[in-house]
């Protein structure tokens, strides 16, 4: 349990660091902006209680907001992400099938599940984020292209990070 907390705390710091220092500067033709920080929320353990999950998502979003100068924007998207995550997990995973504090990582859950999981959640998060940011339907095409390209980029990065920390022995 304490190991899980430390691992998640480290991941939290690392992910925000990468997002703020590295990815904030990446902006390909002002279309794709990867938001890798959602990885923290994606990789929280399955057994994180809802009462903890939502504040964590909210705080993560707020911290990112404080760096992006968009108060509430990422927080709202992250809270939606947490909700979608709960729905997705409740649909696809049987909770009593695990023994010791499992996490929804690539090495534990397998590529197909993890890909679907990250893709779905990223799409929800990014769609909500970009539309809330634009806050108008007039530029919908532009917003849509931003959303799609950024989603591809983010999922790509998430999968790379999953492969980077792939541990074969954990695989069931």
């Amino acid at each position: 349990m304490s190991r899980s907390i430390i691992v998640n705390l480290l991941r939290f710091i690392l992910v925000i660091f990468i997002q703020v220092c590295l990815l904030k500067n990446i902006n390909v033709y002002s279309l794709t902006t990867p938001y890798i920080y959602i990885l923290f929320i994606l990789l929280l353990p399955f057994e994180t209680p809802n009462i903890l999950l939502f504040p964590l998502a909210f705080v993560t979003g707020l911290i990112i907001d404080s760096f992006y100068d968009t108060p509430g924007l990422h927080a709202a998207a992250c809270v939606l992400l947490a909700f979608v995550r709960i729905l997705f997990i409740s649909i696809t995973v049987q909770k009593d099938g695990f023994d010791n504090e499992p996490e929804p990582t690539l090495s534990i859950m397998g590529f197909r599940w993890f890909f679907t999981y990250s893709l779905t959640l990223t799409l929800f998060h990014h769609f909500f984020l970009f539309n809330l940011e634009a806050f108008s339907i007039s530029q919908f095409q532009y917003t849509l292209s931003r959303f799609l390209l950024s989603s591809v980029f983010t999922v790509f990065l998430i999968l790379i990070s999953g492969l980077l920390f792939f541990r074969r022995k954990e695989r069931k």
Binding site: P55, T70, G72, A75, F83
Partner: peptide, 16 residues
Amino acid sequence: AFFLFLIFEVFSLVIY
């Protein structure tokens, strides 16, 4: 989950 979602979502949208 739904109620927590509602609370936090409304909160962050208000901030936004």
